[in-house]
Amino acid sequence: MTQTEAPTVDNGVNIEALRGARQALTDAPEAAQFQWRARCEWVNGTHSRSTITDFSGLGDQHSHRKAYTIEADHPEVFASEDNGVTPPEIVLGALASCLTAGVATVATNRGIQLRSVTANVQGEMDLQGILGIDADVRNGFDRIDVQFDIDADASPADIEAIVAQSQKRSAVFDIVTNPTTVQVTVA
């Protein structure tokens, strides 16, 4: 059977490098141990600024191309100043970003050209939790819904499959849906 040249797909993902990395890390699992970091400074009131500069992995320390900052605050309806997004909103953005990056990667791996990808995310939260009004209400989200709108050279079934695979291999999907050990200490 002759091989036909698959149309070149360009979603901006360096799929060859990712496949190579996966192979290399299979043989060197120690190199796969990463640590992500953020440093947060209180500004005023509920306003804080997180700065992200470096991380470790592949047996070495690395720096981002520049220091990135995230401003966080509470909105005016919370009697605050709205100098930035709320931390739960950052989590929703993180989830959407992680899944979207996954969609791009999986699509490229499967030879599918994307034209546009939009994820709309909503997180339901009962404030009686964080306000300590009702002990039966959790602090976090009661549920999160994500809707993907994808325009691509693929059947609806193939697009659904890409979105399913993205969830399967998403860091933030796992972080949000499964328990994670968090240890908080004071210097």
Binding site: E160, A164, Q165, Q167, K168, T177, N178, P179
Partner: peptide
């Protein structure tokens, strides 16, 4: 007992694979 909130994802995946 803490259970994953990702069941919807696994169910959608299993249904998809069955359909395929």
């Amino acid at each position: 007992a803490l259970c994953s909130g990702g069941l919807g994802s696994l169910v959608a995946n299993a249904d998809l694979k069955e359909f395929r």
